[in-house]
């Protein structure tokens, strides 16, 4: 497996994300209401997702799924984001699990979390999950540094 948390992926993601941030910041907010902040948040979130998926490219299923979802989201953006956040919060219920075997509930839960692994077998899904986790960790690291930098 290629190591996605290498410095090249990190720096490329940083560059892309910052470019997107600059682009978002060009459009000045008309008001400072929470609605405005929410819209801005959504755009930044999509920009972060898109930057990461673009850096990874089309060689991974999850990045392909993210890009496709962003493309499809142009129209029904708000409803989808609401549904997704509801879905994540609704998945909090714990499942009764055996000791050593992976239950279907867990598998489905992971399938919902990782984009683009809906119809995969378990092996490929775990592979995708590993890659996705690494990329998410990189993303969080970079974004936290940006936030820290700007918040001081």
């Amino acid at each position: 497996m290629k190591n996605p948390s290498s410095s090249s992926v990190k720096s490329r993601f940083t560059r892309r994300f910052l470019r997107a941030l600059i682009k978002i910041n060009r459009q000045k907010p008309s008001s400072s209401s929470s609605r405005e902040i929410f819209l801005r948040y959504r755009r930044i979130r999509i920009a972060a997702d898109k930057a990461m998926a673009c850096v990874i490219g089309s060689r991974r299923a999850w990045s392909r799924a993210v890009l496709r979802r962003i493309k499809n989201q142009k129209r029904k953006r708000l409803a989808d984001s609401l549904r997704r956040s509801n879905g994540i919060h609704g998945m909090k219920k714990m499942v009764a699990k055996e000791e050593d075997e992976i239950s279907y509930e867990q598998e489905n839960e992971l399938r919902k979390l990782v984009p683009g692994v809906g119809a995969m077998d378990l092996c490929s899904m775990l592979d995708e999950t590993a890659h996705y986790v690494m990329c998410l960790a990189t993303q969080v690291q970079v974004m936290r540094k940006i936030v820290d930098f700007y918040s001081t």
Partner: peptide, 30 residues
């Protein structure tokens, strides 16, 4: 395996929420 998968699910959720939160913070900072 079940416990491990639980941990993985939690971690992925945590990371996704962190991305959410960080983008929210960036939006607030913007």
């Amino acid at each position: 395996k079940a416990g491990m998968l639980d941990e993985i699910i939690n971690y992925v959720q945590c990371l996704q929420r962190q991305v959410e939160f960080l983008s929210m913070t960036l939006a607030a900072l913007n």
